[in-house]
Nucleic acid binder design. Structure first.
Length: 467
RNA sequence: GGCGGCAUAGCCAAGCGGUAAGGCAGAGGUCUGCAAAACCUUUAUUCACCAGUUCAAAUCUGGUUGCCGCCUCCA
């Protein structure tokens, strides 16, 4: 069975057919590095990280490119405010990006290209557009001639005429058409600039993605992704630039993640209603954040709140409890052969994996995938208990981890070994219980709890976990 | 004005033509020295509303209401 995904370009779910068999070339628009990223940005990063991991899980080799926009008005503004240079601002927030992205357990991209590393190529690209009549220069600025690209609007399903009707008033009069957008900006006093055929200046925003995607992945790529707010104009413009220059489709599939809202309103830096990923990660484990984000479908908006994070945390805990229980079964090590029922259970485990793949193949339905894991866990909790054969428990535990991996959850290391001193205390408590000295037993249990070790008594002996 | 999305239990959320997944929270029970964990039972005759199509609709069509987004930098 093949993976199906929703293509914004066709507004339909389509079967994924790679350009090169077994490979996925994907480009995802990354952050403008002038600030910490917020939890809404994190959603997009997380969604595409999961999609990438899932492709890998299904055996694809994925080339995952995510750019850093390191030259733009906001960086310049920030640099001026802080009295430092634009490259210093970029350097700082790229570093901060990695800090937070790593904390969120986002897999590192194959390449994180930066716009400023591609200025030469950007200039060449714009020159090509100019040669083909798709670009024109005015006093050091260069604009894209949207009217000439007849398919303009095909991604956002907007027609140029309607767009013009709704355009705001502050139209630059040097443009031939209000919808033309800037490819190259002439340098203003105090701004960084690069030499170009049109004078000193810097790239416009949209051009960098066209150029970097093309340079690193080729003229046609498999998947281009980003947040829903990039559909228009950013991705529309990328298509116009790339297809005008290369004369072939830019990306086969366009994928967009829905917003993360606060009180049902888009979280954004301009609305100033955001939480940074960092401040959330101070209070919540990255896995909890992932659990929360992936509990809804990536194309549906989700509302953000601390209460929902708490719910996700409780849900995750249920999963980890099951894993912890399996570890205990494995440690107590019942080596016997599987009986008929257990063989049946072992085979049944495989059916959960099949179901998981089925729902994930269908446009990355992580919500369903998580529910499959919960169904699996309920079955395991019911049918694999103290006294079950070790091999069965090993298989069950491995499966939970396997299914959690593409989602970036349930990968925490096992509990590890206990310190000798604590083992002694547990032993002491067992003695106390045997002697019905429950006061002492409970005191030891409470003390250990203070130290982060929770004890649970089972018929097969005491079970412990770290909290 | 143009384009688009959403409305499912107390909360979150999947399902998108075959008779309401899953999680959180709550209630009762089993187990336990007490706990914890786990399990069992329970919580939507019903999917914003009104028509229609169909043997069959939360799912399709038309309309109504409400909310949100893009068209301007934004993930």
């Amino acid at each position: 069975m093949a993976i199906k995904l929703y293509n914004t370009l066709t507004r339909k779910k389509e079967e994924f057919k790679p350009i090169t068999p077994g490979e996925v070339k994907m480009y995802v628009c990354g952050p403008t590095v002038y600030n910490f990223f917020h939890i809404g940005n994190a959603r997009t990063f997380l969604v595409f990280d999961t999609i990438r991991r899932y492709f890998e899980y299904r055996g694809y080799k994925v080339q995952f490119i995510q750019n850093f926009t390191d030259i733009d008005d906001k960086l310049i503004k920030k640099a001026n405010e802080e009295g430092i240079t634009v490259p210093e601002v970029a350097e700082r927030y790229i570093k901060e990006y990695y800090t937070d992205a790593d904390a969120l357990n986002l897999k590192r991209a194959t390449v994180n290209p930066r716009a400023t590393e591609y200025v030469e190529k950007i200039i060449d690209f714009i020159k090509d557009l100019e040669d083909k009549g798709y670009a024109y220069a005015v006093n050091g600025d260069v604009y894209y001639r949207t009217k000439k690209f007849t398919e303009y609007g095909k991604l956002s399903k907007q027609s140029l005429d309607d767009l013009e009707a709704g355009a705001r008033i502050d139209v630059d009069e040097r443009k031939e058409d209000p919808m033309d957008f800037v490819l190259w900006k002439a340098q203003k006093p105090g701004e960084p600039g690069w030499e170009s055929p049109w004078g000193v200046g810097r790239p416009g925003w949209h051009i960098e993605c066209s150029v970097m995607a093309c340079s690193l992945l080729g003229e046609t790529i498999d998947i281009h992704g980003g947040g829903a707010d990039l559909v228009f104009p950013h991705h529309e413009n990328e298509i116009a630039q790339s297809e005008a220059r290369n004369g072939k489709p830019f990306a086969h599939y366009w994928m967009h993640s829905a917003y993360l809202n606060v009180n049902n309103q888009k979280m954004s830096k301009s609305l100033n209603n955001f939480f940074t990923a960092r401040e959330i990660l101070e209070k919540y484990d990255a896995e909890v954040v992932r659990m929360f984000m992936l509990s809804g479908h990536y194309r549906n908006p989700i509302n953000f709140s601390l209460d929902l994070l708490d719910q996700a945390s409780s849900a995750l805990e249920r999963l980890y409890n099951a894993m912890s229980n399996l570890e205990h079964i494995i440690e107590s090590g019942n080596e016997r052969e599987l009986n008929t029922e257990e063989i049946e259970m072992s085979n049944k485990l495989d059916s959960y994996k099949a179901k998981y793949i089925e729902v994930m193949d269908d446009d990355f339905n992580t919500a369903d995938a998580i529910s499959v894991i919960f169904d699996l866990v309920r079955d395991i909790n019911t049918n694999i208990k103290e006294g079950s054969p070790k091999t069965l428990a090993v298989k069950a535990l491995a499966l939970i981890k396997e299914l959690g991996a593409p989602l970036g959850i349930l990968q925490k290391e096992s509990r590890g070994a206990l310190e000798e001193e604590i083992e002694k205390l547990i032993e002491e408590r067992q003695q106390a219980r045997k002697n019905k000295n429950f006061a002492l037993a409970d005191k030891i249990r409470d003390d250990l709890k203070e130290r982060g070790i929770v004890l649970e008594d089972t018929p097969q002996g005491v079970r412990w976990k770290r909290v």
